[in-house]
Amino acid sequence: MRAFPSFKTSRLFATATLLSLFLGCSNMTPEKTLYQRLGSAEGVANITELFILEIARDERVIAYFEDSNVQRFREKFIEHLCMITDGPCEYSGDTMVDIHVGMNVTEGAFTAIVEDLIEAMTKADVAIGTQNQVLDRLARLRPEIIYL
């Protein structure tokens, strides 16, 4: 029996420790995905419901939704929000451009929708830092939505 590990073993051990420091920190305490921080399926469904309620009473944007099917919007928005926050979903709806072309969504209407989503997430007790990560990802879609 050896009193100390061999040079080879200790080097291996050191390499493994270093590797785990570089790669493993997040594995030891796995960071939740954005989707999980929204409360996973239940959370995303709840936010979507609150979002629809905010839109329904928002005179600035309600006209844009006159011809939309609420059930379909709910379904597709849940999918989209789930996918965009790294959840286990595939968005199966139309492209952002296809949906918004001809609607001439103004810059102001887009902001109004952003505010409605902030309000929905706030009511769902989503932390402001998590809200900002969601908004940042959705904001990238802006060129595919406004003035089409």
Partner: peptide, 10 residues
Amino acid sequence: AWIDGPFHRT
């Protein structure tokens, strides 16, 4: 401006 800036603050 960055919506999701340092400390996830705008």
